[in-house]
Simulated scan of single mutants.
Amino acid sequence: MSSRRAYPSDLSDARWALIEPTLTAWRAARRGPGTAARVHDLREIVNAILYVCRTGITWAYLPHDFPPHKTVYDYYAKWEADGTAEALHDLLRDRVRVASGREAAPTAAILDSQSVKTSCNVNESSQGIDAGKKIKGRKRHIATDVLGLLLAVMVTAASVQDSPAGRQLLDHLAVAHPTVSMAWVDGGYKNEVLRHGVTLGIRVKVVKRIAAKGFHVLPRRWVVERTLGWLMQHRRLARDYETLPQRSRTMVHWAMANIMSRVLTDESTQTWRNDLHKTGILSQK
């Protein structure tokens, strides 16, 4: 445990205990003759990543009581490249599902997308214009389970339409989660997505908007919308600041890991709306 004053984004002992075995094993696998000694505490590296994710600051502006920002980003990039961050996220997701009384393997999914503006450091080749929402930037395509936990995420230019991205998401679901046999989407996903789902053994159903004035909660659709709201509580995701799309994808994994670790340890995240532990994620059936 660090001797510095704690930040609100820091891992508690209980949350660190959830992820420490995975990262300790990662570090141990990289030791060998001629390997330089690891001088930085892995817990502090994770704390620094979560600080960036939650506050939205640039890496270079990390407070000086964290490890050097270049070192933190190096770990962030390595954990993205070798799949450690995603594996850690998936481990936490399975534990939350089991804690909620469900099987670790999901059987249903909900798909949606979110367009966000990008910062000036993002290459033009990875950006695009979402003509419908009038946003120039990138688009996050996500698939969640019925609890709102992330099953798959893709980051593309905002000009990529939901239907082609939806087919790719279904491909990923079929490989990573072969137990998924049902998926819900909105009207932005065309019939080609439904037909593609059939070839993968996934029944895709469109949940249409209610033809009435005012706000209406749509069956199943509200779950993925809530997940997008959870992500936006992390200011690093309010705009896409990552130079590479795959690094942007990993920031989503860290945001969800932050949320799920708090759910598992029953720790609340203070927001302007409510406390996380009051969302009832573990009581949904």
Rank of each mutant, 00 (worst) to 15 (best):
M1H: 09
S3I: 05
R5C: 10
S9H: 03
D13Q: 07
A14K: 12
A14C: 06
W16L: 10
P21S: 11
A25N: 12
W26L: 13
W26F: 15
W26C: 10
R27E: 15
A29K: 11
A29S: 14
R30H: 10
G34E: 13
G34D: 13
R38H: 12
V39Y: 04
H40W: 15
R43W: 09
I45A: 08
Y51H: 15
V52A: 03
I57G: 06
W59G: 00
T71N: 06
V72R: 10
Y75D: 05
Y76E: 13
Y76A: 13
E80Q: 14
A81R: 13
D82F: 14
A87Q: 06
L92H: 01
D94L: 04
V98H: 02
V98Q: 04
A99H: 00
G101C: 04
T107H: 07
A108K: 03
L111R: 04
L111A: 07
L111F: 12
S115A: 13
V116A: 10
T118Y: 05
S119Q: 09
V122I: 12
E124G: 04
S126Y: 01
G128R: 01
I129P: 00
A131M: 05
G132K: 07
K133T: 04
I135S: 02
K136W: 10
R138V: 07
R138K: 13
R138L: 09
R140Y: 06
H141D: 05
H141C: 05
L147Y: 04
L151Q: 01
A152C: 03
V153R: 00
V153E: 00
V153Q: 01
T156I: 00
A158V: 02
A158N: 01
A158P: 01
S159D: 08
D162Y: 00
A165D: 03
G166K: 01
L169M: 07
L170A: 08
D171H: 11
D171W: 02
H172A: 14
V175M: 10
A176L: 05
H177T: 04
V180R: 08
S181N: 14
M182T: 13
A183K: 06
W184G: 13
V185G: 12
D186P: 10
G187A: 12
G188Y: 13
Y189E: 11
Y189M: 10
Y189K: 09
K190A: 15
N191R: 12
V193C: 11
L194E: 10
H196G: 07
T199S: 15
L200D: 08
G201R: 07
I202E: 03
V204W: 03
V206H: 00
V206L: 01
K208Y: 02
I210T: 10
I210L: 11
A212N: 12
G214Q: 13
F215N: 13
V217F: 12
P219Q: 08
P219M: 12
V223N: 12
E225P: 13
G229A: 15
M232D: 15
R235Y: 09
R235G: 13
R236K: 14
L237W: 07
D240L: 06
D240Y: 05
T243K: 11
S248P: 03
S248Y: 02
S248Q: 08
R249A: 07
R249E: 06
R249D: 01
R249P: 02
M251S: 10
H253V: 05
W254F: 14
S261G: 15
L264R: 08
E267N: 06
T269G: 09
R273E: 15
N274F: 11
D275K: 14
L276E: 06
K278G: 06
K278H: 15
K278E: 15
T279K: 09
I281Q: 06
K285S: 09
K285C: 10
